[in-house]
Design a protein around this nucleic acid. Structure first.
Lengths: 121, 121
DNA sequence: GATACTTACTATCCAAATTATAGTAAGTGT
DNA sequence: ACACTTACTATAATTTGGATAGTAAGTATC
């Protein structure tokens, strides 16, 4: 008789929709992918994720931190050092996002040939 | 001695980056989620995925079709009828995207409380 | 026989998000 | 005194996305 929360991402006003938006986001996927290999500094993440602007990197990290998926540790040194790391909750996301990455790698040839065929007509 | 293609989504110019962008996209996730339950008409998808505009729905479907993930069958009737369906390739995407959805549903409470804590400071 | 109804879209305009790029802080090394 | 380092923030320009209206075309209605 206990009612479940029943989150439904198909409803635009459900908070889980925002979560799908966040998790299903190019930068989230790639940044989290980097952090899956262990803690990393801001500059290291920037270097690993090709093409991300500093603005989007800090936005993405801030959002991940707010959602409890990543921790931020700043060391009061000069030059500054800031280390980001996945939380336990963030680590539950790993297999999900890595499977996206793996899917993209594996099925690239099939998609590429589908595109060629489509574009030919 | 055979060289593998070695697609790397972390490189901005690799085509697999575009695939991650596509798969990691709110509308792709939700539309594919609907089509996982079986073929559906344009209007049915629009009704299931709350908040999607006709423009984004047709854009998303066209991109999925181009990538060989979805088929489009139009019946020359009045009023028109168009049925979309996952291809075999598209079906390989199902478990991946459904796991995103599942993750979002399951971890919503944890994220919500993390946010509350973060916003309090 | 003019009008309304249906469905699957396109076209258009405007707001919002993203990119590129430059700038800031602050202590150490030359 | 000046450059160098790192982790950002600020600003303007471009791109993307959203809201809404319109189109085609045959059938049913008045």
């Amino acid at each position: 008789m206990n009612e479940e929360p029943d989150f439904d991402p198909y409803h635009p006003d459900c908070p889980s929709r925002q979560l799908v938006d966040r998790v299903g986001d190019r930068w989230t996927i790639l940044v989290t992918g980097v952090l899956s290999d262990g803690p990393a500094r801001y500059g290291e993440i920037a270097a690993s994720v090709g093409g991300i602007s500093p603005k989007m990197l800090s936005h993405t990290l801030k959002a991940l931190e707010r959602d409890g998926l990543v921790t931020r540790k700043a060391y009061a040194e000069v030059p500054p050092r800031v280390v980001y790391e996945l939380t336990d909750l963030g680590r539950t996301l790993r297999p999900v996002l890595l499977s996206i990455e793996a899917w993209a790698r594996e099925n690239m040839p099939a998609v590429l040939s589908a595109r060629k065929q489509y574009d030919a007509s």
